[in-house]
Design a protein around this nucleic acid. Structure first.
Length: 308
DNA sequence: AACCAGGTGAGGA
DNA sequence: TCCTCACATGGT
């Protein structure tokens, strides 16, 4: 076990808001500390004011890793000052100051958000947990057993039935298909980090001979992967909560027809067409700026936590 | 008991 | 390109 502390003076960071904001699904808050399985080990983090008290199961999970994972070197003030301080953003920044985007591993993020479609956050956590429990490698930390996130190789060897038994439902075949694709080596996920946003997005949404490279990844999931694991801070994922928030707080950015579409998404089973998604996404990017993804994450948490 | 959930793919107009 | 619908399941 490795113990170390990080000093966060002049580094706005709130681990609670950050880990509770629906970006990552494997962190658990218990007895005043956050426990997470990241990379090939376990991390325990407790924040007290400007200090982060950390324990980890392996020496790879050191202070440098923490800085990278929680993006503590990002210029937070520069990011905030680039985002328009309208009434909504002002309120959100004030209430949830310290909420940050985190930098996850691409494979885990990608598979987690494929699993995230058409369900709720508690259940996403459950499904991911089941998947890790069944297919992840064991690690022990502080007297307890944990499981690593399963590799593509391991999942590629699983049957759809075994995957479905984790509660994945219809998502099981997507998980297997993507695991096959990644395990085959025909795509390199780390390449996504090297490309710019449009190109990386194109790769995720690519079709070869009418068949998708990544079955189960549409615009919203692609944006989540690019934002939460590939440093594409202009990505602006639009889910039901964001649609709801845009219709409620930002109708002025859109014409009547688009507002109607946003409203129809938040009631009933309808989803945004590809074209409408792109249109709204572009508008949001133009308004919120090159760190639109940060604004999106505040808006998401703001919408979920209520405005009162 | 319906309804909802960090949507997407398939199929047809 | 667009719209409509099925999809599995558990939380509320």
């Amino acid at each position: 076990m490795w113990d170390f502390n990080l000093n966060l003076v002049n580094v706005p960071f709130d681990i609670g808001y950050t880990l509770d904001s629906g970006q990552a699904f494997r962190w658990l808050y218990q007895g005043g500390s956050w426990y997470g399985v990241v990379g090939r080990g376990v991390l325990k983090v407790r924040q007290e004011g400007f200090t982060l008290f950390c324990s980890s199961s392996s020496e790879e999970l050191d202070a440098r890793f923490i800085h990278s994972y929680f993006r503590l070197n990002d210029d937070f003030e520069a990011i905030l000052s680039s985002i328009p301080k309208d009434e909504t953003m002002n309120d959100a920044f004030q209430r949830f100051r310290g909420l940050r985007l985190i930098r996850q591993e691409v494979w885990e993020c990608l598979l987690s958000f494929v699993i995230s479609t058409n369900t709720n956050i508690p259940r996403i956590k459950g499904m991911v947990s089941n998947l890790c429990e069944k297919f992840g490698e064991r690690v022990s930390f502080d007297g307890l057993e944990y499981r690593l996130f399963p590799t593509a190789e391991r999942l590629a060897g699983a049957s759809v039935q075994e995957l479905a038994a984790c509660g994945l439902g219809y998502r099981a075949k997507f998980v297997r298909d993507i695991s096959w694709t990644v395990d085959s080596g025909s795509v390199n996920l780390d390449e996504l980090r090297l490309q710019d946003y449009p190109k990386a997005r194109e790769i995720l949404l690519e079709r070869v001979l009418e068949k998708k490279t990544f079955l189960g990844i549409g615009r919203k999931v692609a944006d989540c992967v690019l934002l939460f694991s590939c440093d594409k801070d202009e990505a602006f994922p639009i889910d039901v909560w964001i649609a709801r928030a845009l219709a409620r707080y930002y109708p002025r950015l859109f014409n009547e027809e688009v507002v109607a579409r946003l409203n129809s998404k938040l009631s009933g089973r309808s989803s945004l067409s590809a074209k409408t998604y792109d249109e709204i996404s572009e508008t949001a990017r133009a308004y919120f700026g090159r760190y639109a993804g940060y604004a999106q994450q505040y808006l998401f948490y703001y919408a979920r936590k209520g405005t009162g």
